[in-house]
């Protein structure tokens, strides 16, 4: 009798321990993606240049608003092969600086209700690092919640000159002084 009691208590203890752990994973706070998209667009009267990177890694912590991005520069693909080569060789120097990262926060996280479907406009601030330079930036973004799925998007402007990316006079008219960056991520994985 005592033996079975003891056994019952033991199992109850185990259950009590594991249950919150299981619940914890069910109510995930960190959502991530390994195939987010970041594109850039340069518009001048001579030509438009664009490139896409579809292998962006990003983590969104829905509890504290933490937002991080990381991408490999060489994964930006252009329509013209030579442009891609020059982008890596001459401008971003991707052998020397292989990655670009963003570490920041959604500064007005309270606006977002992650349990209710909807589209929420948020402000994002943090450090954008590329080409060996780190700069504080802020941007406006949209968090979309639909059927429990979270997606994020943003569009902001970056000046190559601020990241020590020098554009020679000869091609100055072909490359815009301000480049438009578009971010689009489906945070379909959680942890």
């Amino acid at each position: 009798m005592v033996k079975t009691m003891n056994k019952a208590i033991k199992w109850l203890l185990v259950l009590l321990t594991i249950a919150p752990a299981l619940a914890g994973t069910a109510m995930a706070q960190k959502y991530y993606t390994k195939n987010g998209t970041i594109s850039f667009f340069s518009k001048t009267s001579i030509e438009n240049i664009s490139a896409d990177n579809n292998q962006v890694v990003s983590v969104l912590n829905t509890q504290n608003g933490e937002l991080q991005f990381s991408l490999i520069i060489k994964n930006f693909h252009f329509k013209k092969a030579l442009m891609e080569e020059h982008f890596n060789e001459n401008y971003l120097e991707s052998d020397k600086f292989p990655k670009a990262t963003f570490k920041g926060n959604i500064t007005d996280l309270a606006k977002v209700n992650f349990t209710t479907d909807g589209s929420y406009n948020v402000n994002i601030g943090g450090d954008l690092s590329m080409h060996g330079v780190s700069k504080k930036i802020s941007a406006v973004g949209t968090i979309t919640v639909k059927a429990g799925k979270i997606a994020g998007s943003s569009r902001f402007l970056v000046k190559p000159s601020e990241y020590d990316i020098r554009i020679p006079k000869l091609v100055k008219d072909n490359i815009a002084e301000t480049i438009e960056i578009t971010v689009s991520c489906n945070y379909d994985q959680k942890m």
């Binding site: 991530y32 390994k34 292998q55 983590v59 933490e66 991080q68 990381s70 490999i72 942890m191």
Partner: peptide
């Protein structure tokens, strides 16, 4: 834990 650890793990997987 800070998200950076998760980032590092993910970067390793994709890197």
């Amino acid at each position: 834990k800070d998200s950076t650890d998760l980032m590092n793990t993910l970067e390793k997987e994709t890197g």
